[in-house]
């Protein structure tokens, strides 16, 4: 019960940041769908810090993968809760670091999909920074279409393969 209330507060804070930043940030061209959030929550791009050596994978929490539409790096409303769950865990565990791992479905060129996967990983990272997580704790890694979760070839496989995974390390 208590943690539920905390979550609600956290979401409220997050929304405040997104909306507040939205006033300052120019809306990019082509973003018209109401149910999509623009991941840019700060002025300018957020440079990556130095790579850290991967530590030990965190096993006491599993955050579901953030899923994406075809050829898109925009975070849908329905996916936001997963990012907030990761942010909440990182707030409570200061020593934990994260690699957001971006993936694509098998369609499209392998090289373009490397860039698209990275864009997805960066979008989730930017969202986390918007939620107050220090960017130096978050690295990105794109696997493009190289490591699908579901080896199938239809829409149901593609849907789960267009994802960002949370690789948490302590």
């Amino acid at each position: 019960m208590r943690s539920d209330r905390l979550t609600v507060v956290a979401i409220g804070v997050a929304c405040g940041i997104v909306l507040g930043a939205g006033c300052k940030t120019k809306q990019p061209r082509g973003v018209t769908q109401q149910d999509l959030l623009v991941p840019e929550v700060l002025e300018g791009d957020i440079a990556l810090g130095e790579r850290f050596e991967d530590g030990v994978r965190v096993t006491d929490i599993r955050v579901d993968n953030v899923l994406f539409a075809y050829d898109s790096f925009q975070i849908a409303n329905a996916e936001v809760g997963k990012i907030e769950q990761a942010a909440d865990y990182m707030r409570r565990n200061r020593g934990v670091r994260l690699v957001t791992e971006g993936h694509c479905d098998e369609r499209g060129s392998r090289e373009y999909n490397m860039a698209l996967g990275e864009h997805r990983a960066l979008a989730v990272r930017a969202y986390l920074v918007g939620l107050g997580i220090d960017g130096s704790r978050i690295q990105t890694r794109s696997y493009g279409e190289e490591t699908p979760l579901d080896a199938g070839h239809g829409e149901s496989a593609w849907r789960v393969n267009r994802r960002v995974e949370f690789a948490l390390y302590k």
């Binding site: 990556l48 810090g49 130095e50 790579r51 090289e111 490397m114 860039a115 990275e118 960066l122 690295q139 990105t140 890694r141 794109s142």
Partner: peptide, 8 residues
């Protein structure tokens, strides 16, 4: 070998 993606 910069942070993030180095590709193509």
């Amino acid at each position: 070998g910069y942070p993030g993606l180095n590709a193509g």
